[in-house]
Simulated scan of single mutants.
Amino acid sequence: MNLMSLLVLSTILTIAIFMINLLMQSKPDMNKLSPYECGFDPFGSARSPMSIQFFLVAILFILFDLEIALLLPIPWSINTNSPNSTLTLAMTLIIVLTLGLLYEWLQGGLEWAE
């Protein structure tokens, strides 16, 4: 497939998706018209207590998201450094995070119903 046919195909696909979007009927309901989609009442009290489990799951998500960012350079590090030291450090990071998650799980920190 050469460049010209790729450009023509992508242009046709873009125009088709745009036309489908224009032809679709929008049926807004109360939830779609709400200014917030986070599940909280926007007109309620701003001082209402939040669930600790919500924050715990959010922090765990951020922690494991950062773990992926720390593990991404491993293939490049294996080529430049000793593969044994790179894999030892990577496995140490994974084991520490797994043990922390296991500890949190066994302590009941991930339970929603109390």
Rank of each mutant, 00 (worst) to 15 (best):
L101C: 06
L63F: 05
S26V: 11
Y103M: 13
L6F: 10
V57T: 05
N84Q: 14
F64M: 10
K27M: 08
L93Y: 06
I20F: 14
L22P: 05
I15H: 10
N2E: 04
N81S: 10
G44L: 01
I68G: 11
G39T: 00
V96E: 01
L87H: 00
A58V: 04
L72Y: 02
P42A: 02
P75K: 00
L63T: 10
N84C: 10
L89G: 05
A16K: 11
M4K: 09
F61I: 04
K32Q: 06
I20A: 14
L97N: 13
K32C: 06
T80Q: 06
P35R: 02
T92Q: 03
S26Q: 12
S85C: 08
A113E: 06
W105D: 08
D65V: 09
N79H: 05
T88L: 13
S34Y: 00
F55V: 05
D29I: 01
V96L: 12
L56I: 09
E67D: 12
T11A: 15
Q107I: 10
T14Y: 08
S45I: 02
S51M: 09
M91A: 11
N84W: 14
W76I: 09
S10G: 05
S34T: 00
G109T: 01
M50W: 13
I95A: 11
I15T: 15
G108W: 02
N2D: 13
S10C: 08
L7M: 09
G100H: 10
S34R: 04
L56C: 10
S85P: 01
S26R: 12
V96D: 01
K27Q: 08
S5M: 07
Q53H: 09
E67L: 14
I62P: 04
L71D: 00
L70R: 04
D65S: 15
I20P: 07
F61M: 09
I12S: 15
K27E: 05
S48H: 12
